[in-house]
Amino acid sequence: MSGIVRLMDVVKDYPLGKVTVHALRKVNLTIDKGEFTVIAGPSGSGKTTLLNLIGCIDVATAGEVLVDGKSTGKLTDKQLTSLRLNSIGFIFQSFNLINVLDIRQNVEFPLLLQGGLSKAERQARVDDVVDKVGLRQFASQRPNELSGGQRQRVAIARALVTRPAIVLADEPTANLDSTTGTQIIDLMKEINHQDHTTFIFSTHDEKVMKRADRVVRILDGMLEAAGLSESRGPSESGGEQVHA
């Protein structure tokens, strides 16, 4: 009954001119703390829409989305912002770093938004995650001086620095070559093992899917039936997750 993320009969419609696009149709999904979950599906199946709802940057048309125990449909913009800041880390397909800030400052940014930590504490946190993603010697460079893989590592560091309950990544490897992509996924998995951070990411790359503990398949805005859709790896998490 717990679960860090719970979706109950979630519907998301997009009005598109005179027609309505049903991006998600009555989706039910529970993700437990510490899971390393892939949302897999073809283009246009609703992966991004699903992650946006979990990430609290969008709200459902119907149904209920619970993130870290809070029902997002009932929250104000201010409360959603605060939930994103404190409970969620984002990793984007095209990295989305702040170009005028250097690597260290990019990583520190969410901590500054949070406030509360002293300069030394922030410093220690930033050093810690920058080390973890192996970018210590690039810390004072600007994002545009780095390769795609390195930029995505910065994005991972930025997502982790606040120690969020959930890290969301929408096709984090789509803009990377397959070797680099694999390395990025391995890095995320390593962190997941070490810190038990919940990772939810989307992909349509079969190679990436193979590295996940749990694969949730989505097609046309619907999750495929349990058993058929779910393939579980050797993850420690368990239980019935999908109610389709």
């Binding site: 990430g55 800041l85 702040i98 940014f109 969410p110 938004l113 930025r158």
Partner: peptide, 16 residues
């Protein structure tokens, strides 16, 4: 705009 979207997603408030 995309940068604003990124900052908002990360948790920057409207006011900021």
């Amino acid at each position: 705009t995309r940068e604003v979207g990124t900052m908002r997603a990360i948790g920057m408030s409207q006011r900021r």
